[in-house]
Design a protein around this nucleic acid. Structure first.
Lengths: 202, 202
DNA sequence: ACCTGAACACCGTTCAAGT
DNA sequence: ACCTGAACACCGTTCAAGT
């Protein structure tokens, strides 16, 4: 077969397969990915621009799947929670993909409307104009870091006998996905409480 | 030369060279690294366990260089700032290394005392026992995410004509390292303000 | 113990050839 | 336009051989 009647590949097919492949714990490699798709390696190059292109295709699959949602008429704090929850789900469901996406530039317009919605909510909260964008970046950075936390091993701290109290706290702490979710919720709560405290003063 | 009188290599030499190499913008590759060290590739394998081992050597260089500091007698908030500033500097000075370190497990005891110091400060702040570790993880995740923000391009948001207000905010925003620092300071401030607000109520 | 050179499997990318 | 097979440069790792 040289040119099949119906195309075997597309950016989307490649993107989906790559997400599945990476999230299964494999490194993103073009050769095994092609094999998995039952296709010759060079075929991929007709649809995406090499390995970098595969990563972009992955994001083009994820963004619309997660970030598209209409604004809900709630308090600003809940609107922030609602919006951030969207990107959090994307991050938390695909931490390995996220790690790859760090390296490539974002161009999607969907992301823009996401940021825009956050800015709206923060404005309503009373955050001063010159802090709006920085605050959005703070929230984003936190989500990012919290999601990557999912990649670290269950026992982040291999506590020796030295610090008994720390050892006790670690033992009492949940592990894996529940820990991860807990960190996210607690951190977002603190940030929002911080915003409230600041704007209440001003 | 087969076995030189004074060793040409050591874990530390390899670690330092790798940090320099990666932070210069290169991918971490064993072959070019060996060439840069003026040494045969296989020589590296006598000191570190492959590419993974190089990454561990990098961290073994950075941790003692940054994280060792004695506790200062300040308010809990300033002690948190002081401690976090240490790891922040490490992250912010070496974001590319940081990205590599995500993948490998942390075993250093130095990191432990760092966490321990944070727990102390939070306890003094009045954070309840069962939230201590989660709060530490929140702070760590934020630092992490904020540092990785340094890797994203200067124009994170390629704002089209659509959202004029967002475009104006982006234009007014600093860029590069100053932006990065600003995000860190602002975020840490919000988190601390959040902690204060929460503990004041309880 | 520490370094070398050769060898091997494998990955990313390109390109001429096919429909 | 879309897929293939072959080819190329290069990377990570191993191993026997040298001091």
């Amino acid at each position: 077969m040289a040119r099949p009647r119906t195309a075997l590949l597309s950016r989307e097919i490649i993107g989906r397969a790559a997400i599945e492949y990476v999230e299964a714990g494999n490194e993103l490699q073009v050769v095994p990915l092609a094999k998995r798709l039952g296709v010759s390696v060079s075929s991929l190059y007709h649809h995406v621009d090499g390995r970098e292109g595969v990563i972009k295709a992955m994001r083009q699959v994820l963004i619309p799947q997660y970030l598209l949602a209409e604004a809900e008429p709630l308090t600003w704090a809940d609107r922030i929670r609602h919006q951030v929850e969207l990107s959090w789900r994307m991050y938390a469901d695909h931490p390995r993909v996220l790690q790859l996406m760090i390296t490539v530039v974002i161009e999607e317009p969907d992301v823009l409307s996401f940021y825009s919605a956050l800015v709206d909510a923060l404005e309503e909260a009373g955050v001063p104009e010159d802090e709006l964008l920085t605050t959005v970046e703070v929230i984003d950075a936190f989500c990012f870091g919290a999601a990557l936390d999912a990649l670290s091993p269950d026992t982040i701290l291999a506590v020796g006998g030295a610090d008994e109290r720390l050892a006790r706290l670690v033992a009492a702490q949940p592990v894996g996905e529940p820990r991860n979710r807990r960190v996210f919720d607690h951190g977002l709560g603190l940030i929002i409480a911080g915003i409230e405290a600041r704007t209440a003063i001003a």
